[in-house]
Structure formats: C-alpha cells, structure tokens
C-alpha cells in the first residue's frame, strides 16, 4: 500500500510518523490533563470518593473568598514589581557587560550562576539571611552597627518584596544572556554611522539599541511575566512553616492551588483556581504580544 503512494504522500506519512511521538506526548501529558482539570473544576472531588457535579459552585466560592482576592493581588504584585525590576537590572548589566572586555567570560559566568542554582537551596539560604537576631545575616549586620532590626519575612508589608528579591536575582542570569545575544545581533555599522554623525550615547541607546531590541524585549517580558505569575518554589521554601504567610501576604495563586489540592484535598476548588490561573496567563501573554507586536 505504501508503495502506491506518491512522493508527496510518502513525505506526509513520514512527517506524521515523526510527529506522532510529540503529538502523542502532548496529547497524553498536556492536553488530556488540561481538559480534565477544566472538567474537575465543575465537580467536587476529595481524591478518595466519587466525583460529583457541582456546577459553578467552585467558581462562586472563589469569587466570594477573600483569601483568593488577596492571593490575586499578590500574584499581580509579583508580576508588576518583578518583571520591570528584573528587566531594568538585567538590561543595565547586559549593556555594560557587553562593553566590558576585561574578564568578560568570567563575569558573564558569575551572573549566570544563580540561574543554575536550585531554587530550593537558594530560597533556604535567603531565608536564613532574613532571620532575626541571633542568626539572620542581615539583622546581625544591622544590630552590630546599632540599628534596629528589620522584620523581613515576619511582616505583612516587607515579606513580599523580601521573597521576590531572590527570585529576581535567580532569573537575572538568563535575561542578561538573552539581552547580550540581542545586543550582539545589532549591526555595528549603525553605531559607526551614528558616531560619524556625532550622536551621543543616550540617543544611540534610545534610537538604535532599544528599537532594535524589540524582539528580545518581547521574549523576555513574556517569559519573565509567566515566570512571576507562576512563582512558587521561592515562596513555598521561604515560608514552609506558614506557607504564603504571614497572613497570606506572600501567597501566590500557585501556592493556593497546591494548598487547596494537597492539604485540603478539595480537588474541584483547586481545579477552578487552576482554570483562573490559566486564563490569567493566557490574557497576559496575548496582551503583551499585542502591545509589543512588531509593526
């Protein structure tokens, strides 16, 4: 039968033969569970008993849950602080690192190192840094110069930025590398032409570098936004005793989902939260692609 096919048809058969594995993989590992999660969000299920239909009850509960709205705000706080801050810092580093020749490779490695470090290990080390006297690094330093302690994690206002800082730092190396690749891709001739015309560095930056970095920017913004919207390991590991605390002030949506599903065993409610997270991620990504779309 295969013999009777035209070359074009044979190519299609081969293409599908190779595609079968990823298609199957995505179908079974990605799309089926995703569909299932949508289904469970309309059901009540405690993992042990039967699933029963709940209609929109889970979503109604979510709407009326003050913790959800707090968590919602936190999630966007991570996004709205984390993304711009990490973007600016990583660009500044990449911009200057690009011009540095002295120990360039070594410096680049230093910036990339945190990205390769396990988030769990990093979170625990920072958790130790933030402890009060007598063990915390920062507070011991403050106390040794006679300043009063800062409640980093044990405060409803300081905790979120404190948790975010190592997360930003951890992602920095990756963004720096991407930015540097983007900077290298800009033809040198533009800068030469600009210099011949006597243009200053600020104009070069705003008129040549940034516009030509747009594809890189789009990628980093979308990528890091999704990262911050899904933040979990840093928060969970820095607040394990009181996950997302104090008073839910650091709890992101993913942690609430985890808690609802695997401590409360309320799978339907957790699935409803997952659907909400999915929707947020989808909207934010589409919005960013649209705003930063190339002309």
């Amino acid at each position: 039968m295969y013999r009777n096919l035209t070359i074009k048809q044979k190519q299609i058969v081969w293409a599908w033969a190779f595609l079968a594995i990823p298609v199957l993989f995505y179908g079974v590992i990605r799309f089926y569970p995703t569909g299932n999660a949508f289904l469970i969000s309309f059901q009540n299920w405690n993992l042990l008993g039967d699933r029963t239909w709940a209609g929109l009850e889970n979503y109604r509960e979510l709407w009326n849950d003050p913790v959800f709205w707090q968590v919602f705000r936190n999630t966007f706080a991570y996004l709205l602080i984390g993304t711009p801050v990490s973007l600016v810092i990583s660009f500044v580093i990449a911009y200057h690192l690009d011009k540095t020749r002295f120990m360039h490779g070594f410096l680049r490695m230093l910036y990339f190192l945190p990205f390769m470090t396990s988030a769990v290990a990093m979170a625990w080390v920072w958790r130790w840094f933030y402890q009060p006297v007598p063990i915390g690094l920062f507070n011991n330093l403050l106390a040794s110069v006679g300043l009063s302690q800062v409640a980093f994690l044990n405060s409803t206002t300081n905790a979120l930025p404190s948790v975010l800082a190592p997360a930003v730092w951890a992602g920095l190396g990756f963004q720096v590398i991407i930015f540097m690749a983007g900077l290298r891709a800009i033809p040198v001739s533009y800068y030469e032409a600009a210099r011949i015309d006597g243009v200053g560095w600020w104009t070069q930056l705003t008129q040549i570098t940034l516009p030509l970095l747009r594809p890189t920017l789009v990628f980093i913004v979308v990528f890091s936004s999704i990262g911050f919207l899904r933040i979990f390991d840093h928060v969970f590991n820095m607040t394990t005793n009181n996950p997302g605390g104090p008073l839910n002030s650091t709890k992101p949506l993913v942690l609430m989902i985890y808690d609802t599903a695997f401590n409360g065993f309320n799978m339907g409610y957790a699935a409803a939260q997952t659907v909400v997270l999915f929707t947020i991620l989808l909207i934010v990504s589409l919005l960013q692609l649209w705003i930063l779309r190339s002309d």
């Binding site: 009181n242 104090p246 808690d259 401590n263 409360g264």
Partner: peptide
C-alpha cells in the same frame, strides 16, 4: 477535618495580634 487549615487559623490568630 483539615488539620493544616485548622492550624493555619491559629497561626493567623496570633499574626493578627502581633503584626496588625
């Protein structure tokens, strides 16, 4: 009925007093 959730309420009861 849900030990971790019930414990969490005690944790928060204290936090409301100490932090707020």
């Amino acid at each position: 009925v849900n030990e971790s959730a019930q414990r969490q309420l005690m944790v928060e009861m204290i936090e409301r007093m100490t932090l707020q």
